[in-house]
Amino acid sequence: MTLSPPADSKLVPRLGIKLDNISKRYGDHVVLDDVSLHVEPGTVTALIGPSGAGKSTFLRCINLLERPDAGTIRVAGHTIEPGKAVNGRDLAALRSTVGMVFQSFNLFPHMTALKNVSFPQQRVLGRSKEEADARSMQLLERVGLKEKAGQHPGRCSGGQQQRIAIARALALDPSIMLFDEPTSALDPEVGLEVLSVMRELAADGMTMVVVTHEMQFARDVSDTLVVMADCKIIEQGDPKAIMSDPAEARTRRFLRAVLER
């Protein structure tokens, strides 16, 4: 079972992410202070840290849902200098290679599950309806929700909605997937369904950046653990090493708080 793009897309070189010196502030309030992160293609990076650390904002800089004030973004072969004007075509090209999954799912409530997954393929990739629907059904089946194709999101549980959202993102054959606390709005049991889909995706070699509070997922699945606090990356490296013996006192404090839960 494979969740990654169809075989022919393996010809496309797999590309990583290089974010350098990213800074972002809202008025006087600094959110990201000169943060740099490199993600190798085919790896999973887990972004953890206390709330307000800037994790989500940083993640959202990768596909420019947030526009940083300074820094350089190199994603899947596209380079964007946020300080300068970004033209719409570059932005669309970047976004088409980066899939994103949100904490609140953000499925389109007025469309069926199938339409949610097919509509972007038709409009962004120019696929025919038949082509798009075929691909959608394939992906819905793989996330275990083929029977929900004709249902509207309101008729699906949170876990099902999130898996449909993952299918929707994968349908555009992204080379990178971003996850913004994908299980935070779900109860633990339902969260597991979503995590298992993400595990499969990681096993298939998808490049993933995951903002999460799921420490077990971060330890077992991620190749790199990145700890953010106070608008900076304070520590990064092998997840098991950091979790068993963090170098920073701030990391230690955070991990103790989460693991004691």
């Binding site: 976004r95 609140s104 972007p120 555009l172």
Partner: peptide
């Protein structure tokens, strides 16, 4: 219409036009 709808639409790379007429307006 929740902000998340626009964000999802933008993240998918849908055009501003599609975002307005196909996502925002119907809702």
């Amino acid at each position: 219409v929740p902000r998340g709808q626009l964000e999802a639409s933008n993240a998918l790379g849908l055009s501003q036009r599609d975002t307005f007429f196909r996502i925002t307006m119907p809702q």
